[in-house]
Amino acid sequence: MTTITADERRGPGGGRGPGERRVPRWGGFSAGMLALELRRMARNRRTVVFTVIMPPVFFLLFGSNADYRSTRAGEGNLTAFVLVSMAVYGAMLACTAGGAMVSVERAVGWSRQLRLTPLTPAAYVAVKLVLAMVVGAVSVVATFVVGSFAGADMPVSAWVGCGLLAWVCALVFAAFGLFMGYLLPSENVMQVLGPVLAVLSFAGGLFVPVDSLGHVFATVARFTPAYGVGVLARAPLAHEGELWVAVLNVVAWTALFAAGAMWRFRKDTARV
């Protein structure tokens, strides 16, 4: 049977019997779905602005002046230092936005529609996580490309190391986005999360060093979710900060958000 025109059907039970039908592998997780979903994300102007335009623009505003270019910071200049922070901020926005897509999809009933396909809920979450990470990578690369033309200077090892760490550690925000996506049944969840992320970035020392804001602030800041990612991502360049605190920070927040997402996800799956 090559086509499924009405004429060729032989009625129920005829043609293709129920026994011959198979369930797709990996619960429906597929490159084809990822490609279509990516195309859809790229079509969303708000997502593009949030993830690909805003971080490089912030970098140009805050990090590319002549003073910064001529000030050394670790193995590079201060411009590179700010660049990595902005890349982390971008990856954070992108990953959160990717994860938070589930909120919109639940709000309009799309996840219910997907329940009428072989796609399993676990595969759906996996698709969203991969998407979040792909968009995060695009955001980091876009920011770095702009940075390389705008005076950021650091060794190749730092370009690669900082970029990879900014991206991988942003997994914590993919989990955060998923958690929020399941928690907030809103069609514009990113309008809520955008300001939250800005505050977290500030508290995590992505916009200004936490030490410059006083001892109490610096102490509290170390426990906020963006802090660990920032310290780790800048480590190949700056070699500063307590790395074990940063690692603990990233692991703990990732575990917490993932557990939260899992909890909401289970509830959601049971209900729908």
């Binding site: 797709p24 084809g32 072989p118």
Partner: peptide, 22 residues
């Protein structure tokens, strides 16, 4: 009503379904 994503085209929506059903 409901259950469709506004920013997919008609063809893409069906194509996604096709991908899921192999």
């Amino acid at each position: 009503t409901g259950g469709l994503l506004k920013d997919y085209t008609v063809a893409e929506t069906v194509r996604l379904t096709a991908v899921l059903f192999g």
